[in-house]
Computed example of a mutant assay.
Amino acid sequence: MSKRALCIGINNYPGTHMDLTGCVNDANDWAAELTARGFSVSKLIDSQATKAAMVSGIQALIGGAVSGDVVVITYSGHGTYVPDTNGDEVDGLDEGLCPYDLQTKGAALLDDEINELFSARKAGVRLVLISDSCHSGTVTRAAAPDPDAEDAPRPRFMPMGNWLPADQLPRGISGQPLTSVTVTAGGSPFAAALSRKTGDLLLAGCKEGPNNFSYDARIAGRPCGAFTYYALKALKALPANATYADWYAKINPVFLPSASYPQSPQIVGTADARKRKIFS
């Protein structure tokens, strides 16, 4: 059995005015922990994490895995959504991950694309996804940052209006771009793409649905994702034979949600997947 991981962290989103601060630290922290647990780890950090590089990295990671292997993908960065073009979304919106070149190239990595990437894996490959981002804001454009609240937690959500060309934004009856949209799902694109049949498992920083956020935080003076910080803190305190269910129970409600970070982490997967020993 081999163990391989890809850790993605993006703070810098050129042209969007929506930079983050803790995502690169998250990726490095996950990479260090996974390396210590015997994983061969690749990273995509900031300008390395273009959409093309993310697709290529996921393809290489999954394509090289065989039955019995464990594959882990961690993503810290903005989530977003776009108008659905193929009619497979109830609320008319596709969820996506935000690559570094989101605004300059105008393309998110959408749930449909992630599903296609994952479906190419060989039978028996165990896929674990760790997502410290959110996808469910209802505004279409974020307000300008408040200089007096520079250290306030920022949701890891990228509204469409901060990156999508104006002619692709949803419009109201008047023909003008909408200022808000109705979101009924708003889940991680990893959740849409994972396969319960093959035992995939997702740990996500927040609930699915409207206005549930994962927060960019500053803890002990260091930028990080609130979920990543507490997930790693919980993991380090667990015994060697702990399961994913044990891990999740140590995160929620022990650490999150909290007064500072009102987010409720989620675990998605079958009962059998949750009972597996962590990273095995």
Rank of each mutant, 00 (worst) to 15 (best):
P83M: 03
V71L: 07
E89Y: 07
D84P: 03
C98G: 11
D94K: 09
D94V: 08
H78G: 11
H78Q: 13
Y75E: 05
G79W: 00
Y75M: 07
V72L: 15
H78D: 11
H78N: 12
G87L: 05
D94T: 09
P83T: 08
T74D: 09
Y75N: 04
S76A: 15
I73R: 08
E89P: 07
T80G: 10
G77Q: 06
D91Y: 08
V70L: 03
D84A: 14
S76F: 03
Y75D: 00
T80N: 12
N86L: 10
S67M: 01
G87Y: 02
Y75L: 05
T85F: 00
T85S: 14
P99Q: 11
N86E: 13
D91M: 06
Y81S: 01
S76Y: 02
T74M: 03
G96K: 04
G77F: 11
T80F: 07
I73N: 02
D94P: 04
S67H: 02
V90F: 09
T80K: 09
L93N: 10
T74K: 02
L97W: 12
Y75R: 05
I73W: 10
E95M: 11
S76Q: 06
E95A: 13
P99D: 11
Y81P: 00
E89T: 10
G79L: 01
G92H: 06
E89K: 15
S76P: 06
G92P: 08
N86W: 03
L97E: 02
P83H: 01
D84R: 04
V71K: 08
G79T: 09
G68A: 14
I73Q: 08
S76W: 01
G68T: 14
G87M: 03
G87F: 05
V71P: 11
V90A: 14
H78L: 14
Y81M: 11
T80L: 08
C98R: 01
C98N: 10
E95G: 05
D84H: 09
C98P: 09
S67N: 12
D84Y: 07
L93K: 12
Y81D: 00
V71Y: 06
G92L: 07
G79I: 02
S76K: 03
D88V: 05
D94N: 15
G68R: 14
V71I: 15
N86P: 04
S67V: 02
V90K: 15
L93I: 04
V72K: 05
T74S: 15
